[in-house]
Design a binder for these strands. Sequence first.
DNA 1: CTTGTTCTTGAACGAGTATTCAGATACGTT
DNA 2: AACGTATCTGAATACTCGTTCAAGAACAAG
Lengths: 178, 178
Amino acid sequence: MLCFWLRGYRATSVEDLVKATGVKPGSLYSVFPGGKHALFLKSLERYSELVVPQKLGELAAPGASLAALRGYFDGLVQDLLSPEGRQGCLLVNTAIENAAGDDEAAAVVRGHLARLEHCMTAALRNARAAHEVRASVDPAGSAKVLVATCQGLMVVGKANPDGTVLRAIVDNAFAVLV
Amino acid sequence: MLCFWLRGYRATSVEDLVKATGVKPGSLYSVFPGGKHALFLKSLERYSELVVPQKLGELAAPGASLAALRGYFDGLVQDLLSPEGRQGCLLVNTAIENAAGDDEAAAVVRGHLARLEHCMTAALRNARAAHEVRASVDPAGSAKVLVATCQGLMVVGKANPDGTVLRAIVDNAFAVLV
DNA sequence: CTTGTTCTTGAACGAGTATTCAGATACGTT
DNA sequence: AACGTATCTGAATACTCGTTCAAGAACAAG
């Protein structure tokens, strides 16, 4: 999973996977019929189940509110600025690199986006009930925009890992809510 | 340029470029010292100078206002839904695929993002002067968010080329401005 | 300790990669 | 027409790629 995350699907060779796992080619192909591609799909699922919930943090909790939502974006910015976080999000990378020609990969990405939108909608609903955001805010609609914004944040962050720029995006995205 | 746009940097072979241009390997390497990578950078520049202004349309004009800004987003959605437009934006693809390990490519992407932000800021300033958006809208700040949103729109569009979803994102992004 | 089975190994395979270069071709000048 | 220079060509180079498979090691049962 780390190989694909760091280097992308095309750029990781089977040799990379052999070195990273210690599993030799023969075994690798018997354990994962379908080879590199099957392993990639498994990596996507593993990322969804292991890394994503960790990044979501409080945002995935039922009582999540504006602070949790803001915390998710702040975490994203922090990751993009750290040397280890420069690889961005495996699922965003996959959307750009593979989604057009790999329906199975695209389906995993779509699932992730749906989950993200669901969490954000719930958080915004809670936030409105607690009068943390303007009453005119439409939770479902604003969640859709915020999903797109955080994907865009990752694109901008890859090309320009500048804290001032990224924080300005987040600040202004939230400014219209209160 | 079309090769890199359609398939990405890593996935386009020199043979693809030879077939597409009709220029044989020997000539290609004498005309472009630096080979595939030099050609890629030239393609990025060509895309910036040829395709981007066409996509910007009215938004690049001095008098651009809210309609031009909205028109840009609508054009983006339309492109993502058409079979020929599924490749998305070469510069977004490059940001994800190459920016982390290719400083020259990242610089071209940064230039594009800066230009986009500049155009959007100007359009929002005009829009506010014409009372097309709320007086509380900060042109510079909102432009930063809109830049991120349109990059995100491209990520979402690649994984989920669904008109309803994409149009909802654009509608809600603009809803907070008026 | 032998036997039969499962699992593991790394060398080998063919296809594909970016790049080079000696030979062939075309062109402008005399 | 003949020469010299610039340009073009595509076969050859030295890889690296994903994948397979025969040979060997490990292991449990008798």
